[in-house]
């Protein structure tokens, strides 16, 4: 069984997103970038399956300019077998529907039966790509999973989904797409020898244009502003009595 792990390069999640006043866009030019944290969890899950003998091959896929190769090399250093790099000539505003179409093309070509990916990317926070991809391929879908178990005959997976009302357990027949939540696992770090080894692992480059997919934007970003968090007056209090009296006056009790 082949596993494909689509991954995304994003602004390092521990970095504050800023709007560049000149370009009026989120400033990524000199920012520290990293693999989307949910994608790291997806990679870890795929590697665990490979190590258990259930998967024959793990393949990371990412889309972007040349810098995206760094993120694919990170996945290779973590232990993924090979990588597919969909190269764009410039920074395109690719949206989940476009990304879904690109990934569907690669997944059909590779005949992969299991797709493991993050539930959302921490830059645009869409929480859409896995769902869209499942619709395009008509694969079964398990979103927001915190537990994953492959059946002994590798024909289905049982997943625990984190939903608003609790945990839902479903059985998905393969081929399937799962999108992972934070608590599924603890992703490993790439060791130095593995980082060295990753340099010689196979990385195939495909020009986006060669796939013939219409990537004209469906959604145009008109403007972005920093919302931040507004500081408030912060009155100091020092007792329960004072707190309850203030809250009563504010009428929130």
């Amino acid at each position: 069984m082949k596993i494909i792990i689509p991954i995304k390069r994003v602004l390092d999640p521990y970095t504050q997103a800023r709007v560049n006043k000149q370009t009026e866009q989120v400033d990524l030019a000199n920012a520290k970038m990293a693999m989307n944290p949910f994608c790291e969890i997806a990679v870890e899950e795929a590697l665990t399956l490979k190590e258990s003998g259930a998967a024959s091959e793990t393949i990371a896929v990412s889309i972007g300019t040349d810098k995206t190769v760094d993120t694919l090399r990170t996945a290779l250093a973590m232990g993924v077998d090979r990588a597919i790099f969909i190269k764009t000539e410039s920074e395109l505003d690719l949206q989940p529907l476009h990304i879904g179409k690109i990934l569907a093309n690669i997944i059909r070509r590779e005949e992969a039966e299991l797709i493991i990916m993050g539930k959302q990317a921490v830059d645009n926070d869409n929480n859409q790509t896995g769902q869209i991809l499942s619709g395009l391929l008509d694969y079964s879908l398990g979103t927001f999973i915190s537990k994953f178990e492959l059946s002994a005959d590798a024909s289905s997976v049982e997943v625990s989904r984190e939903i608003d009302s609790g945990i839902e357990i479903r059985k998905l027949n393969l081929p399937a797409i799962v999108t992972v939540d934070l608590r599924l696992n603890e992703p490993r770090y790439a060791s130095l020898p593995n980082i060295m080894k990753a340099r010689s692992k196979p990385l195939e480059t495909i020009e986006l244009d060669s796939l013939g997919i219409d990537t004209s934007p469906r959604i145009k970003v008109i403007s972005v502003v920093e919302s931040g968090t507004k500081d408030r007056a912060s009155k100091q209090i020092s007792s329960a009595e004072e707190l309850f009296s203030e809250l009563n006056q504010m009428g929130v009790l």
Partner: peptide, 16 residues
């Protein structure tokens, strides 16, 4: 709509 965990608010226009 919010981006980056609500740190950025984006105004977006759909052409669909």
């Amino acid at each position: 709509r919010p981006l980056y965990a609500g740190n950025i608010m984006a105004t977006v226009e759909s052409s669909d």
